[in-house]
Amino acid sequence: MDLFIAIFTGTIIAATPLIFAALGELVVEKSGVLNLGIEGMMLVGAAVAVWMHFAGFSMPVAILTATLAGSVASLIFAVLALTFATNQYAAGLALAILGSGISAYIGRGFGGAPIDGLSSISIPVISEIPIIGPLFFQYDPLVYLSYLMFACICWFLYRTKAGLVVRTVGESPESSHAIGFSVIRIRYMTTMFGGAMAGLGGAYLSIAYTPLWVENMTAGKGWIALALVVFATWRPTRIILGAWLFGAMTIFQLHGQALGFALPTEVLSAIPYLATIVVLVIISRNREILKLHFPASLAKPFKPSG
């Protein structure tokens, strides 16, 4: 039972940074923009959070600054892809590379220094319930925030006019422009929101999950988040399911040996990456489903004429 609880809670925690980053990217992609730079923005968030922490700021301030830093980092991409209408793949790669460099620069000197991680909040009374308590009510606040963000994003995208506008821009920027929406401005806002979420996911890694700063500590989580959006076929609920799946893979890798799988550590470490490929293959085979949910203008540069 204890092992089950450990695996369950471990999965939820490992899924949290992916949920933040992938939900953010979902909103970006819904507006027709493909930002490949999530890995860079997560790293910037992770480094800034640690930097603020060692500069003596409180946890909430460190997290908030990291979130803003992710948003600012996304501007590197936004200027290229939106203002200058360059190839979005290239602009995203530039952000991924630049973000890794900037984060390494910010984080130099803090490498490997341990942090008193974010403490979990124990909700009174219900967290005392046996089994149920430890399973659901003893996480740190950011875990709960990730599900709150999930609810907010579902509501925003499918229940508000602004969400409808975002989706319209993603389907047909030309028509949106013609009826008077500022496509570029809306895309700037979604891109910066995506950056903030990636920064938050990165901060979660460095001050709650690990908790310490190591260069390139995201180890592909930004890219896995991108894969999750495809896996989820651009639907928020499936992002949560996908993130749990990948969280479980990560935890399996940690507990694999305890569970009696006598495999080399490298094989266990490769599981999340191989799983990403397998999942992409399964989803991508069905072109009809992809076509149905795919934002029609995704990754196509848009330049309003006149």
Partner: peptide
């Protein structure tokens, strides 16, 4: 710091 090199590469690409 060696990360300066990577910032340069990124800036150049930008």
């Amino acid at each position: 710091s060696s990360s300066v090199t990577r910032i340069f590469q990124g800036a150049l690409l930008f």
